[in-house]
Computed example of a mutant assay.
Amino acid sequence: MLATPGTLPTGPEWVYEVKWDGMRLLADVADGVLHLLTRGGRDVTASFPELAALTTVAPDVLLDGEVVLLQDGVPSFAALADRLHRPVPRPRTPVTFMVFDVLRLYGVPIEERPLHERRATLERLDTSGVPTLALSPTYTDGRALWEATARRGMEGVVAKRRDAPYGGPGWVKVTHRHTQTCLVGGWRPGRGVLLLGVPDGDALAYVGRVDARTAEQTLSDLLSGSERASAPFAERPPRADAAGVHWYEPVVAVEVAHLGWTAEGRLREPAFRGVRADVEPEEVRREG
């Protein structure tokens, strides 16, 4: 389930969590075997060997959470994205799986139960054998959490209705900064420049360019084999943006921070944050 962008709701029917700046994953343990799945169904178990002990939580369980990589006590999305493309057998800095929901336990689906029941079930699980697992804390004062996350430079807050089943409209996200997931339609190798698009109906709208020199090797690996002869955008980008660019099928997703949108539908001052290997192209949409 994805949270809907909005304003911070208030009232006793809501609880609040930190919006972690990480990667959303389902941890599916069946017959004692773990599979870590992105929201698009991609299996990334091999990328996070430090989560192997999740099989000790229960022989059959489905957990929803977010993998985060902490740097100076604050999640770093860029460092996490790099791990996906260069998995290491013994990572120097282990990730933490911040779990916030349980959808199945001992073969019984429980996603239709209200959040407060699922949370109580989650808190009864014995997670002591998994040092890389943490329960995402819940809070009753959304405004105080909003202010605290702003001071720490964190991404924002998610509000959830206590009585909501999983998959309903009862999750609202409120962020301190603008971010947008885009599809790569062009790349200028050696210069690190990406030309970005966002789906608009059946077309791909050009939304601007961004400097991604920090991810040159990763982009080279991901874009290999998807080059095309012409731009994939509905309208060809300006000549200055397109000079020296190689065109690609829009199948690689990246995330950028930005300062809003121009009247022409371009991102204002986009800054590259990392590759979104957990996002499928059909999931990308304009986020405000």
Rank of each mutant, 00 (worst) to 15 (best):
D60Y: 03
Y139F: 15
F48G: 02
P89I: 11
I110L: 15
R42A: 03
R119W: 13
L69E: 04
S128D: 14
P131I: 13
L36C: 02
E111F: 12
L37I: 01
R83W: 04
L70F: 11
P75A: 08
R118M: 13
E66C: 05
T38M: 01
V44I: 03
V57H: 00
S136R: 10
R90Y: 12
L69P: 01
P137I: 10
V108R: 15
T45L: 02
R118V: 15
F77G: 04
R39D: 00
V61D: 00
G65Q: 04
V67Y: 02
V74Y: 08
A52T: 05
I110E: 12
L36H: 02
L80C: 07
L133N: 05
V88C: 10
S76V: 09
F97V: 01
E147H: 14
G65N: 03
E112I: 05
P137A: 12
H35E: 00
P131A: 10
D60G: 02
V99A: 14
F48W: 01
A81S: 15
V74F: 05
G40A: 04
G73E: 05
G40S: 08
S128I: 06
R143S: 07
G107Y: 11
G65L: 04
E111G: 11
T93H: 04
D101S: 09
S128N: 10
D72P: 03
P89L: 08
E147T: 12
T138H: 12
V102L: 09
V68T: 05
F100R: 08
D43S: 04
P91H: 13
T55D: 00
D82P: 02
V57T: 02
V88R: 13
P114K: 13
L70S: 03
V99R: 01
G142T: 11
A58G: 01
A78N: 11
V102W: 05
D126Q: 09
V74G: 03
L103E: 08
L62Q: 06
T140Q: 14
V67P: 00
L37M: 07
P94C: 08
R119M: 13
H85C: 06
V44F: 03
T127L: 15
V67H: 02
V95D: 05
V130K: 11
Y139C: 09
Y139R: 11
H35L: 00
G40Y: 00
P89Q: 09
H116N: 10
A144H: 10
D64N: 04
H116C: 08
E50R: 05
E117M: 10
V130M: 11
T132Q: 14
L125P: 10
G142C: 12
V102R: 07
D101V: 05
A134S: 15
T127W: 14
I110R: 12
R83F: 04
A134N: 10
P94M: 06
R83P: 02
L135V: 14
R92I: 11
V68W: 02
S136I: 08
A134D: 10
L122G: 09
E111N: 08
A81F: 09
L133D: 07
T132G: 06
V95I: 15
